[in-house]
Design a protein around this nucleic acid. Structure first.
Lengths: 144, 144
DNA sequence: CATATTAATTCCCAAATGGAACCTTCATAC
DNA sequence: GTATGAAGGTTCCATTTGGGAATTAATATG
């Protein structure tokens, strides 16, 4: 099966990956969450080629993860911003970051720390049950 | 910059993606969480080519996400199981699934439902603060 | 001995990627 | 009005990666 056809699978993970599962895409999203908005900023932050970046941004816009918003006229220039759909990727991003911190920490410590403004503490993300607020662990969850 | 060099970035997301950010890899992990263990099972579930599958499994084993465990002698056959490191990807997987359910739901409803054995309810994953147990939202988290 | 099972590997062609140069629209400076 | 520069792309081409089918390897079974 071609990778391009995975969005036809009856699986939310596969369908999610058909949008954000390509090389560079999640790094673009990461940068977007950290405030990057413009083409050249993305390009120099990521080191991805302009061609690839252009392609990925276009796809993310097509899928409604980013929107192009004009920030000046003459010449018209657009910047890319996360939509609600894009903001919805926050848990994915934070979970990835957390896993990277926990398991891929090659001698250089956690690159970023996070402060939760709501409680004022240094925080890390925990996956919790929507109903009982206890942490969700794979053994305790039955998919049906 | 080459994709292969992203693990050199000082970013946990980039380092995580250097292991699980390639095509098919997260789908292999998904299947592993659902109980798939053997080469041919992965192959027929995913529809990935044997070549690609072999390559990805090898990489996951090298990075300690999966282990090869012999399940018979003569001929020795191995199956692939999630390690603790691999199990650590649960939040990433569940967050992806949740996002797919919420935003990529092409007319066919949520493919899987999840029951939390701890509380007995149908559940979905929520990203919570490790300190105050409130949901973590991007606006309320300051990276430093 | 022939066939089946499971896990790979090889080969060949198609598709995706990386790198660098080029293009377009306008503003500003000379 | 020509030159320079900034922002956001596109084009071109060589290299890398991926897909598909056939093949190999180790052994059990008939």
């Amino acid at each position: 099966m071609r990778w391009d056809d995975i969005d036809k699978q009856v699986c939310s993970v596969a369908r999610a990956l058909s949008v954000v599962g390509e090389r560079w895409t999640m790094l673009i999203i990461r940068d977007a969450f950290l405030g990057t908005r413009r083409f050249d900023q993305f390009q120099s932050n990521l080191g991805v080629t302009r061609h690839r970046l252009s392609e990925r941004l276009t796809k993310l816009v097509e899928h409604g993860v980013l929107v192009k918003v004009p920030y000046q006229d003459r010449p018209v220039r657009y910047e890319y911003r996360l939509t609600r759909k894009g903001l919805g990727l926050y848990p994915v991003l934070m979970s990835l970051a957390r896993w990277g911190d926990d398991w891929m920490d090659k001698d250089q410590g956690a690159p970023l720390e996070y402060v939760h403004q709501t409680c004022g503490n240094k925080t890390h993300p925990v996956l919790a049950c929507s109903e009982c607020v206890e942490p969700l662990k794979p053994e305790a969850v039955t998919p049906q």
